[in-house]
């Protein structure tokens, strides 16, 4: 799989800086698992971070820190092996590894809630930075023109949709901000399952609410 649509470089810079809110970082991790192009971009951003870190004025460490370090070099405790190797598309029924802590391991076990005809959603619990959700939209459905009052990142997991920005298939990311309006139409055939992150304040209930209001009137 070679995605055609990637996160904005500004989003990768923010990820590199540890500044991306959790909901977005989780989605970017899932995309990185299948996108070598973005992993290379991220490495450049991390090179920037490394250079900036190295150039900064040193901060004093407490007395004894150096001795404590030396003492720990003799520890023989082995490192735990990596738990995941991000098998993002290895098993078609498995969610990308970064999404699994929030939604479970498999698509088959997802507990969808209908929020409008043809539209189902699962909100992730316990995400403090932004809102993270899965959306399942029936095939061949037009989502009315909408703009964005916030950042919104969408990662297609299954199915596809089209809008003015192009065709979005599994692995593709739409990285939208407040200057973009679009009108997605889900592809015919299978439902479109997306992971989405937004930083819209919850008291405005995000633009997803606005996005979905017209659907309710279908």
């Amino acid at each position: 799989m070679r995605p055609l649509h990637h996160p904005d470089e500004a989003t990768l810079v923010s990820y590199s800086a540890g500044a991306l809110p959790t909901a977005f970082a989780v989605l970017v991790s899932a995309h990185l698992g299948i996108c070598r192009h973005c992993r290379e971009q991220l490495l450049d951003a991390d090179r920037t971070g490394g250079m900036l870190m190295q150039q900064r004025e040193p901060a004093p460490l407490s007395a004894g820190a150096r001795d404590r370090m030396l003492a720990r070099l003799g520890e023989t405790r082995p490192d735990p092996p990596p738990l995941h190797r991000v098998p993002v598309v290895a098993d078609p029924d498995c969610l990308p590894a970064p999404l699994q802590p929030y939604f479970g391991a498999t698509y088959g076990d997802l507990r969808w809630r209908m929020i409008a005809p043809g539209v189902h959603r699962i909100l992730a619990d316990g995400v403090t930075g932004g809102t993270l959700m899965l959306l399942r939209i029936a095939p061949g459905r037009r989502v009315p023109m909408h703009g964005h009052a916030a950042n919104e990142l969408t990662l297609v997991l299954q199915g596809a949709y089209d809008d003015a920005l192009g065709h979005f298939a599994p692995g593709d990311v739409a990285d939208l901000d407040d200057e973009i309006e679009h009108q997605p139409v889900t592809a015919p055939g299978v439902p479109c399952i997306c992971a989405a992150a937004t930083d819209a304040p919850l008291r405005f209930s995000g633009r997803f609410a606005r996005l979905l209001q017209p659907l309710i009137r279908f």
Binding site: S29, R39, P82, L83, R85, A97
Partner: peptide, 9 residues
């Protein structure tokens, strides 16, 4: 673990 996995790729 996810970052280790990405590095390993």
């Amino acid at each position: 673990p996810v970052q280790d996995g990405l590095e390993w790729l």
